[in-house]
Write a protein that binds this DNA or RNA. Structure first.
Lengths: 212, 212
DNA sequence: AAGCTAAACTGACTGTTGGTCACCGTTTGA
DNA sequence: TCAAACGGTGACCAACAGTCAGTTTAGCTT
């Protein structure tokens, strides 16, 4: 691949500008209520111009999600260093995950939307694939944690059950978040959710240590 | 309340007819792609007529969800009789829940949509309240199960932790379902999900018996 | 500097869809 | 018998995602 020229860099900057504006709008007013014209207006471009950089509203949204997942990965990987037990790692991971996706509630809604409708969105094929790949990457991080726990002899878990546990764990986190989103009016305290996650983790980890 | 006359009954029948048609369409093609005109056409009415019976597309959808939750309650309550241990009850409940909401995948998507956007939908006030009340009722069933387990001395669980466990449990179920929806192409086998739920339950129940 | 090309950009336009409303025929009951 | 109420109609409206013919701008060539 040739080096990127100025044009490419400018193009990329524009994309980022649009994404940033869209992000702000989506997180403030929610995905649906924001129109493409709103986004265009915010970056002082015409609607048509936005379509030069993205295939549509949905792709903008997908790109925001992708960027955020990447950011999450950047934040989450360092925690593997400096933590002793697998229990600690898994606990830290859970809290980071919950905190991350509750920082802006709309982000979690967007994530769930993509999970629920997976292959049913009209995105450019490659965007769709990237969404699936990146999400799976995030999921597979938890898989590594379980493996780590087994290797350390901390978890009593058959190798073939890792996948199952990974799913259960991941699902549990998403489930708790969405439930809180549903029950909690906007006033829901983060601490409430944290304690819920903690309680759940305790049982989960306890079970991992005991059961096979 | 006065007895319902013929007019009322006919009106109700019409509503049910519309709901049934809408249900079929939603479950076949998904919520978004189905237009109000499609629904109207299917029941051989004009679009305007549909709006005489429902405030809009969203309310039709909400009503379908409400009816299904009611149906679920009807199916789930009998299981309390004839089962001995709380573990059995909770296991049965979990499987019924998963089976029920995976029978038609769109139903689960609809449920999640309402959970995620809770108060952000423009529904008639009373419909909105009913959605929240009915969902909470379903959630509180699990609360009763935990209570039952404690009363029987089967679960070692502080009374003030019931709510937390209920949330964790409920969230876990929804999370697993949505994860499978995401990962599984349409071919996903029900058995796969069941085994996942089972594994998760084992740990969960084990934890409930052990931890405090 | 003038001429040229391609990319960036515009905004009026289209198509679709959720929702509204003035109007019409039928039933009802006084 | 007749008017009010009711069930129903379908043309219409507004909002919005997405398109495209045409205009401007940037940068290159001679």
């Amino acid at each position: 691949m040739a080096l990127k020229g100025r044009k490419d860099r400018e193009r990329e900057r524009r994309r980022k500008t649009i994404l940033k504006a869209a992000r702000k709008l989506f997180f403030k007013r929610g995905y649906n209520p924001v129109t493409v014209s709103d986004i265009a207006k915010k970056v002082e471009l015409s609607k048509g111009a936005v379509y030069l950089y993205f295939s549509g509203k949905e792709e903008i949204c997908a790109q925001i999600l992708l960027d955020d997942i990447a950011k999450f990965h950047g934040e989450v990987l360092p925690i593997f260093n400096g933590l002793a037990s697998a229990s600690e790692v898994i606990t830290s991971f859970a809290h980071m995950y919950v905190d991350f996706f509750l920082k802006d509630r709309e982000l979690f809604r967007i994530l769930m939307k993509f999970m629920l409708h997976a292959n049913n969105l009209d995105l450019p094929e490659d965007t769709n694939i990237r969404i699936i790949r990146e999400t799976n990457r995030a999921i597979s991080v938890t898989e590594n944690i379980f493996q780590y726990g087994i290797d350390k002899g901390e978890f009593v878990l058959k190798k073939e059950d890792i996948r199952t546990m990974r799913n259960a764990f991941w699902g549990m986190l998403n489930g708790i978040i969405s439930l809180h989103l549903f029950m909690g009016r906007e006033s829901t305290k983060k601490e409430r959710i944290r304690s819920n996650v903690n309680a759940c983790l305790n049982i989960f980890i306890e079970g991992l240590k005991k059961t096979g």
